[in-house]
């Protein structure tokens, strides 16, 4: 799992690549934890390279979503592949996270 974080025009861009599963969910959480305490609350996540996420991964996206909401920002996930999108749909996460 590769996580790239860049800042541009007061907006945070995150690019994800690979799988989020049991073996690396914790590391993924560490990688994105800094995003939860930022002054630039708007986050855009590019999920083009993300091939799978376990429920631990969903939980981390949820935590991210909640922190963004607390800071008064917006979180958007882009380019999600259909299999991953299905997981988000089934669990109802598509209702609370903006997926475009």
């Amino acid at each position: 799992m590769d996580v790239k974080i860049t800042n541009q025009d007061g907006k945070t861009f995150v690019t994800l690549d690979g799988r989020i599963d049991t073996t690396n969910a914790e590391k993924f959480q560490q990688d994105v934890s800094m995003l939860m305490n930022m002054n630039a609350p708007d986050i855009e996540i590019d999920c083009k390279g993300m091939t799978y996420t376990s429920s631990q991964g969903l939980r981390i996206f949820l935590m991210l979503q909640k922190s963004v909401m607390v800071n008064g920002g917006k979180m958007v996930m882009r380019n999600m592949n259909p299999q991953v999108k299905e997981v988000f749909d089934i669990t109802g996460f598509s209702n609370i996270i903006t997926i475009v």
Partner: peptide
């Protein structure tokens, strides 16, 4: 129907 998982909101 797509309901949200339990325990979130």
């Amino acid at each position: 129907k797509t309901n949200l998982a339990v325990g979130l909101f």
